[in-house]
């Protein structure tokens, strides 16, 4: 750590835009969204929760019983216990990603950011505020999802409580990624690409079948951001702490950090020309 501290600051000082270093008011963005959402918007939030929820129920009632136990970290677990934390990760991702797609509208038609940037707020405030807001939305999905998991008996032990902060981290990472993607969207048509990228990631992140079944292509999984969330939540649900979870945590934080820096650059370029 000493080594890192000695060498990093000059590099990051150049990398982190001044607008992020000057960010003091990201919570004002949350406040604005709260002003908007307190009147009925809450129900829209629930929409993204139902999708994985139905997967969960169908797994429990349906094909879960047709599939044999799966080995996770040397431990045999039922398929339901295998797949539920993966769906939780997907739920955290969906909640955060859906929310950040609003960023496009706030940048363009709604002019939300333009009016914020005329005040002491900076592009960094805008980015951090919206990433935190999307993280909260993803976190809300996850919390509700976790309750359903517990009620259906899909959590393995009290270790399951760790799933909440861990799924917040997954939300945070995808809030960053979603924000960065939204700054590249040029028109409403471009939104088509987002689910096109998200669906294969959802299906092929060791979500429904174990990493070992990818055979010699197992290493490819590391390039799927969702995989790191899935693997992290799956291990924690079983109370397992293999060294690899450290990697997953670092990757998720790095994704969030890089995305935030990129988003701040993009917003500045688009709105502060």
């Amino acid at each position: 750590m000493e080594l890192l501290n000695n060498h990093r600051p000059p590099i990051t000082a150049g990398l982190i835009p001044p607008s992020l270093r000057d960010a003091r008011r990201p919570h004002r963005v949350l406040e604005r969204h709260w002003f908007v959402s307190r009147s009925g918007f809450f129900w829209i939030l629930l929409g993204g929760f139902f999708e994985p929820f139905f997967y969960l129920v169908s797994t429990q009632l349906g094909f879960g019983s047709l599939i044999d136990d799966v080995e996770v970290g040397g431990e045999l677990v039922s398929y339901v216990h295998f797949v539920a934390p993966a769906l939780l990760a997907a739920s955290a991702m969906n909640g955060a990603m859906y929310e950040t797609m609003n960023v496009f509208f706030r940048m363009t038609f709604d002019k939300t950011y333009s009016s914020m940037l005329a005040t002491p707020m900076t592009a960094g405030d805008v980015v951090l505020g919206d990433v935190f807001w999307a993280t909260i939305r993803g976190g809300l999905y996850s919390a509700a999802f976790l309750v359903v998991m517990a009620v259906l008996g899909m959590t393995s032990s009290w270790w399951g409580l760790l799933l909440l902060p861990a799924s917040l981290l997954v939300s945070f990472a995808f809030a960053g990624v979603g924000m960065a993607i939204a700054t590249f969207i040029r028109s409403i048509e471009d939104f088509e690409y987002v689910p096109t990228a998200m669906l294969p990631m959802f299906l092929f992140s060791a979500t429904f079948f174990p990493a070992s079944s990818y055979g010699r292509f197992e290493w490819v999984l590391n390039f799927s951001p969702l995989y790191h969330g899935v693997a992290l939540l799956r291990a924690l649900n079983l109370g397992q702490f293999p060294p690899s979870i450290f990697t997953h945590v670092v990757v998720l934080f790095a994704l969030a950090g890089l995305s935030i820096v990129l988003s701040a650059h993009r917003i500045e370029r688009a709105l502060l020309g």
Partner: peptide, 9 residues
């Protein structure tokens, strides 16, 4: 107006 004022703390 209220939220705009909040942007100024």
């Amino acid at each position: 107006l209220v939220i705009y004022g909040r942007y100024f703390d």
